[in-house]
Design a protein around this nucleic acid. Structure first.
Length: 197
DNA sequence: GATAAGATTAACT
DNA sequence: GTTAATCTTATCC
């Protein structure tokens, strides 16, 4: 697998989100256990978007998204679930890509354990599930995703005909924007939004 | 200082 | 399909 090229993440968030489909995400736990998977579902957010955490400017929480591309932006959702984003765009512009679905590859049994016994498509078909399966918390906030223990490889290899674009999930504002992307027919995609194409 | 809402999930009817 | 769990952040006193 090729090392991560951050250049494709430095453009707009939607392009970054499409490019991340098919990329390999590798997590190395403290005991050396390797967990990995292929990104199959993403959503794009930027500071012009009312649904984005960066819409109202830089804060302590969203600071990572205003930094360089290719870092981890981790936030706590609904007081319970950590969610992992890849920062995008140029420094000074608040943008990122939420990782919503992962096809598990290595360390599946350890992921199942981290997920409290969930298996199959239920293992990683959602942003909170994905982060829990890879033991991602705010301890990795701002982490450079070109380096262990959480690292991206590849990207930009999925033909557009194999992807689907829809509206994003769980939003009350900006809900109409077609900024969710996933790999067609992947079982590890959450299926709650109407298809646009 | 108080309160409402939220880029979710799992359990339940 | 509906709802509880759980807590940070944003927004308004």
């Amino acid at each position: 697998m090729l090392p991560l090229d951050v250049a494709p993440l430095q453009g707009d968030a939607a392009s970054a989100a499409r490019w991340l489909l098919g990329a390999l995400l590798v997590r190395v736990l403290e005991d050396g256990t390797v967990l990995s998977g292929r990104i199959v579902e993403t959503e794009a957010y930027d500071q012009h978007d009312p649904a984005s955490h960066t819409y109202r400017g830089r804060t302590k929480r969203n600071a990572a998204m205003f930094g360089p591309a290719g870092r981890a932006y981790v936030y706590l959702s609904y007081g319970m679930h950590w969610c992992l984003n890849v920062t995008a765009g140029q420094s000074g512009f608040g943008a990122g890509v939420l990782l919503r679905g992962l096809e598990p590859l290595e360390g599946v049994s350890v992921m199942e354990s981290l997920r409290g016994g969930a298996r199959g498509r239920l293992l990683t078909n959602g942003p909170g599930k994905l982060a829990q399966a890879l033991a991602v918390t705010d301890a990795l906030y701002g982490h450079d995703l070109t380096l262990p223990p959480l690292q991206l490889f590849g990207g930009g290899r999925v033909p557009q005909r194999d992807t689907v674009t829809t509206t994003r999930i769980g939003l009350s504002r900006g809900a109409e924007a077609p900024l969710r992307f996933f790999i067609r027919d992947s079982p590890w995609v959450s299926r709650k939004a109407p298809l646009l194409n």
